[in-house]
């Protein structure tokens, strides 16, 4: 019992001494307050607008063999972090409309599908500082259907759209050309409709 009492006193004494000794050291404390982590934003503006307020880009009527147009739209990263833009062509539909006599005479035998998409050649490019960079070569627009372009994981990643820093923009252009062919008449009154879907993904 005497030995236990001695042990308790010793332990208490040691604890007291150690505690007193530590608290007696020189010390300094600084506090960094209000540390925060705020998520960045990634906001794509196409021609200055967001979905679904973007105007239709391509609305060409009375198109005839030999006609050509270039349509361009600025893509802007209105967010606060870097983003990789890319785009895809979806829901491409060839409409026959009315089959006029010259179409039938030229061999258009079907009411099912229009032929304009075979004769309308499209190519994509981007522009910056007066320079143009071809994204995908000229091909009938039918071959662009359900394809994605300009990103590292797209169907046609040969030339990437540039990564956009916050507030940066790039101009994307679509060249359309109605090629002259001996069978142009089969495409009379036909219509090609398509959607363009623009993406901006967070970049490394």
């Amino acid at each position: 019992m005497k030995r236990i009492l001695l042990l308790v006193i010793t332990v208490t004494l040691v604890v007291f001494m150690v505690g007193t000794g530590f608290s007696a050291m020189f010390s300094d404390i600084e506090t960094s307050e209000d540390n925060t982590v705020t998520a960045g934003t990634l906001d794509l503006k196409v021609a200055g607008d967001d979905d679904p307020g973007v105007d239709v880009f391509v609305r060409l009527s009375n198109y005839a063999p030999g006609d050509r147009d270039r349509k361009c739209w600025p893509l802007r990263n209105a967010g606060t972090i870097r983003g990789q833009p890319w785009f895809e062509v979806t829901n491409l539909v060839n409409e026959e409309n009315v089959r006029y006599e010259p179409e039938i005479a030229a061999g258009d035998l079907s009411d099912d599908e229009g032929e304009l998409g075979d004769q309308l050649v499209a190519q994509w490019l981007w522009e910056r500082d007066g320079n143009s960079f071809l994204i995908w070569q000229a091909q009938p627009i039918n071959r662009h259907a359900n394809s994605s372009f300009g990103g590292p994981l797209t169907d046609y990643p040969h030339t990437l759209l540039p990564v956009l820093d916050a507030g940066e923009e790039v101009v994307l252009c679509l060249d359309l050309r109605f090629v002259k062919r001996s069978d142009n008449n089969v495409a009379q009154s036909d219509r090609v409709r398509f959607n363009i879907v623009f993406h901006l993904d967070q970049a490394e």
Binding site: L176, Q188, D201
Partner: peptide, 21 residues
């Protein structure tokens, strides 16, 4: 879960001319 944004522009269209004989 990376950040991304998508803008869709539907109903782009090219309509061919009609020529009569």
């Amino acid at each position: 879960a990376i950040f991304s944004d998508v803008v869709e522009v539907p109903e782009n269209a090219v309509v061919a001319d009609v020529r009569s004989r």
